[in-house]
Simulated assay, not measured.
Amino acid sequence: MNLEHLRIFTHAAELGSFTKAAGALGLAQPTVSRIISELEEEWGGPLFYRTGRGATLSELGQEALGKAQALLRDFEQISEDLRAFGRLPNGNVSIGLPPSLIPSVLPDLLNQLLRDRPGIRLRVYEGFSEQIERWLSDGTLDLGIASKYGTDDKPHEHPPKGGALMLSSRLVLAGRAAGWTLPPEIDFPQLAGIPLVLPAIPNGLRMVVEAVAKRMKLKLSIIAEVDSILAQRELVLNCGCYILKAPHTFAVEEREGLLASSVLRNPCFNRHAVLMTGQQPLSRASRDVAGRVTAILRRLSRR
């Protein structure tokens, strides 16, 4: 017995005629009769009752038909899966990114997909970590990058469930390069009196900065609460204020001499980028995108 024998048997059963089955399969009628007889001999009983108007299934034949159809369906699915494996991944992938990582991650990711995976279409959601985690939990996103903050004396403990730590960086104080006089590294207490622009609570960065300031009994001069990265940039360049950021955020502005920065210390502040997945198993396209995002973040960490 082989799969071709099962196909011949199922055709004969479904059509109720050896002659019709032979015609549908492009075989001679005696060939169909011979194979059915061989199956009956192997399975130990008649599969059909022959009548003048065709053939009807016996009790054994009815049992055999259900099992043969299931086996053929499984084989077809295996064949389709293997054929699909040889094709490039395709489909929609929803990914959430924090504003600070969009310039560093998104152009590189999209250019790779356009070059290597034209069948994958990104749906990009911009949001802070709390939003991204909500979108992952409710199924809006397939993938998301969340930012977790800590200090050297109180590091962020572990990536959340379903997350993998991809990138760690020390935060810096940044401001307009023109007239910059601060040293390469500054102690956190030196922020007192410096006009700061920070995101609003419950942003993770804001909360860890506030916690350290409270512990040190330090009063910060927060002149504006601004969540938008682009708005922060405009305020720094045009209003003489300062922001706290990861080194790769506004890297172009620093290379062009528009912004300058000093690394915070005592304590050092760390930003951890965590790649997270949603509740459902990832598709091949989502796994492909996740691998590319991981590689991009790891390249950033080596800079």
Rank of each mutant, 00 (worst) to 15 (best):
A231C: 10
A231N: 14
Q232V: 12
Q232A: 12
Q232L: 13
Q232C: 13
R233I: 06
E234S: 15
E234Y: 14
L235M: 10
L235V: 04
L235E: 05
L235P: 01
L235H: 04
L237K: 03
L237C: 03
L237V: 00
L237T: 03
N238T: 03
N238H: 05
C239T: 13
C239M: 09
G240C: 15
G240L: 14
G240T: 08
C241E: 14
C241A: 15
Y242W: 15
Y242T: 11
Y242P: 11
I243K: 00
L244K: 03
K245A: 15
K245S: 13
K245G: 04
K245N: 12
A246D: 13
A246G: 14
P247C: 13
P247D: 12
P247V: 09
H248V: 12
H248F: 07
T249L: 12
T249Y: 11
F250P: 00
F250S: 05
A251V: 01
V252E: 03
E253Y: 01
E253K: 00
E253S: 02
E253L: 01
E254Y: 05
E254R: 13
E254F: 06
R255L: 11
R255K: 13
R255W: 02
E256Q: 15
E256P: 04
E256V: 08
G257H: 07
G257R: 07
G257S: 09
L258F: 03
L258P: 01
L259R: 08
A260P: 01
A260V: 00
S261Q: 12
S262F: 06
S262W: 06
R265I: 11
N266D: 09
N266C: 04
N266L: 03
N266R: 05
N266M: 03
P267K: 14
P267C: 11
C268V: 07
C268Y: 09
F269Q: 02
F269I: 01
F269V: 01
N270Y: 14
N270D: 12
N270K: 07
N270L: 08
R271S: 09
R271Y: 08
H272W: 09
V274N: 02
V274D: 03
V274H: 03
L275M: 10
L275E: 05
M276S: 00
M276V: 00
G278H: 01
Q279T: 09
Q279Y: 00
Q279H: 07
Q279C: 05
Q279K: 14
Q280G: 00
Q280M: 04
Q280N: 10
P281W: 09
P281H: 10
P281L: 09
L282Y: 01
L282G: 03
L282T: 06
S283Q: 08
S283G: 10
S283W: 13
R284G: 01
R284M: 03
A285K: 05
A285T: 07
A285N: 11
S286V: 05
S286K: 07
S286P: 07
R287E: 15
D288S: 12
V289D: 03
V289A: 06
